[in-house]
C-alpha cells in the first residue's frame, strides 16, 4: 500500500514545530514514530497535506524525576521507558504496558509514548483499506452516518486500544499540551471525549510536550489480553493503582481501576475503585467484587469491533482487573 503524497517538514526546535502547527492547523499532522499515523495514511484514512516531524526534537525525549513526579518527554521511545528503572519502580503499570506494545521492533525502532497516547481509536470495520471500505456506506468515523459495529448507533464506538493510556490513567497521570503562546495541563481522566471520531480534547495546533506521573508511594499493575504474545493490540486490559494507608500497612487507602480496549477511551471505574477503599490488601474476595463491579460498569460501553467476541471481552474485564489488583497487592506486601 502506498502513502498518499504530502509535504514533509522537520522543524529543528520545539518553537519551530509550534509555529508550523499554528500556520497549518488542520492541514498538518504531527509525526513522532509514525507507527500509528503512517499505517492509517496508507489505508487512506487520512491525507494530511503536511507532515511535521518531531525527528529533530531530541529535547522531547527524556525520563526524569522531579520532586515527587516522573516527567516523560512526549517523544521518548517505548524502549527507553521499558529500560527505565525509575519507571519500573514507581510506575510499574506503565512498564508492563509498554512491554506489551506491538513488538520490540515497534518499541525500539520508532514508537513513542506520546504517539501511543495519541494514537487514533480503532475498529475492525474502519482500520481497513480504501477498497474494503468501498461498495458500502461510509460509517460515522469515515464521514458517513452508520455504524457497522453497533446496529442503529448514532455515533462512532471505535475502541481505544492504547496500552500506555490505560496504564497512565491508572497512575493518575496528566499531560502538558502546548500551542503557540500557551500551555495547558490536563488530567488524562479529563482528556478524553466520548466521541469515537475525535477521541480526545485536543486542538489541531497543539503539541503534546510532556507526561507527568505523580509518585504517590503506591503500587500499580497492568494486565492485558490478546491472541498472540506479540504484535497484537489488546482486546481488553486493566491498569490499577493501590496505595496503603500511612497508619495501617494492610489497609487500602486509595485505589484506581482503569480498563482499556473496551470503550472509546480508557474508563476510570470510580465505583469499583472507591469500593476498595478501607479494604485489606489480602482481601481476595474484595478484589473479586471490585473486578465484577468493573465488568458490570465497563461492559455497557463495549462493542464488537476489535476481534474475539464481545461476550468474551466483557467477561475478561473482570479477570484482568482481578489479576492486576492481585499483583499490585502482592508487590505492596513485599
Amino acid at each position: 500500500m502506498r502513502l498518499p503524497r504530502f509535504e514533509y517538514i522537520e522543524p529543528i526546535n520545539f518553537e519551530g514545530a509550534l509555529d508550523l502547527l499554528y500556520i497549518h492547523k488542520d492541514n498538518a499532522k504531527v509525526l513522532a514514530g509514525g507507527t500509528d499515523l503512517l499505517v492509517r495514511m496508507k489505508k487512506g484514512l487520512l491525507k494530511p497535506k503536511i507532515i511535521i516531524s518531531l525527528k529533530a526534537l531530541k529535547e522531547l525525549s527524556y525520563i526524569k524525576k522531579d520532586d515527587s513526579y516522573i516527567k516523560i518527554g512526549a517523544r521518548t521511545s517505548i524502549a527507553d521507558i521499558i529500560a527505565s528503572d525509575l519507571i519500573k519502580k514507581e510506575a510499574c503499570a506503565l512498564f508492563e504496558a509498554c512491554e506489551k506494545i506491538g513488538a520490540v521492533t515497534i518499541q525500539h525502532y520508532r514508537g513513542t509514548i506520546g504517539g501511543n497516547i495519541l494514537q487514533d481509536n480503532r475498529c475492525i470495520h474502519y482500520n481497513q483499506s480504501a477498497f474494503h471500505r468501498s461498495g458500502r456506506q461510509p460509517c460515522h468515523k469515515d464521514g458517513g452516518k452508520i455504524c457497522y459495529a453497533r446496529d442503529a448507533s448514532d455515533r462512532c464506538n471505535s475502541t481505544c486500544q492504547s496500552d500506555g493510556a490505560t496504564a497512565l490513567m491508572a497512575l493518575g497521570a496528566n499531560i502538558t499540551l502546548v500551542r503557540k503562546g500557551t500551555e495547558r495541563i490536563i488530567d488524562l481522566d479529563n482528556f478524553y471525549t466520548t466521541d469515537g471520531i475525535m477521541p480526545f480534547a485536543m486542538e489541531s495546533n497543539e503539541l503534546l510536550k510532556e507526561i507527568v506521573i505523580p509518585i504517590q508511594g503506591g503500587k500499580s499493575s497492568y494486565k492485558r489480553l490478546a491472541y498472540r504474545s506479540a504484535i497484537d493490540y489488546p482486546i481488553v486490559s486493566a491498569g490499577v493503582f493501590l496505595k496503603s494507608s500511612d497508619t495501617s500497612k494492610n489497609e487500602i487507602e486509595d485505589a484506581r481501576i482503569v480498563v482499556g480496549a473496551i470503550a472509546r477511551a480508557p474508563i476510570f471505574l470510580a465505583k469499583a475503585s472507591s469500593f476498595l477503599k478501607g479494604k485489606k490488601f489480602n482481601d481476595i474476595s474484595a478484589f473479586k467484587k471490585a473486578a465484577d463491579i468493573s465488568m458490570d460498569n465497563a461492559s455497557t460501553f463495549a462493542v464488537h469491533n476489535v476481534g474475539s467476541t464481545l461476550e468474551y471481552r466483557c467477561a475478561m474485564v473482570s479477570e484482568m482487573v482481578f489479576q492486576a489488583l492481585k499483583e499490585a497487592a502482592i508487590v505492596t506486601q513485599e
Binding site: 475492525i124 470495520h125 474494503h132 457497522y148 498472540r228 504484535i231 476481534g307
Partner: peptide
C-alpha cells in the same frame, strides 16, 4: 488455536497479518 476469518457480509474483516492471528515464533 487462533486462525480463522471473520466476515461482515462478504467482506473479510481480518485480511492482514495484524488481524489474522498467525502464530509467531514466540507463541
Amino acid at each position: 488455536l487462533t486462525e480463522y476469518h471473520e466476515w461482515n457480509g462478504g467482506r473479510c474483516i481480518n485480511p492482514t497479518m495484524l488481524d489474522y492471528k498467525l502464530p509467531l515464533a514466540c507463541d
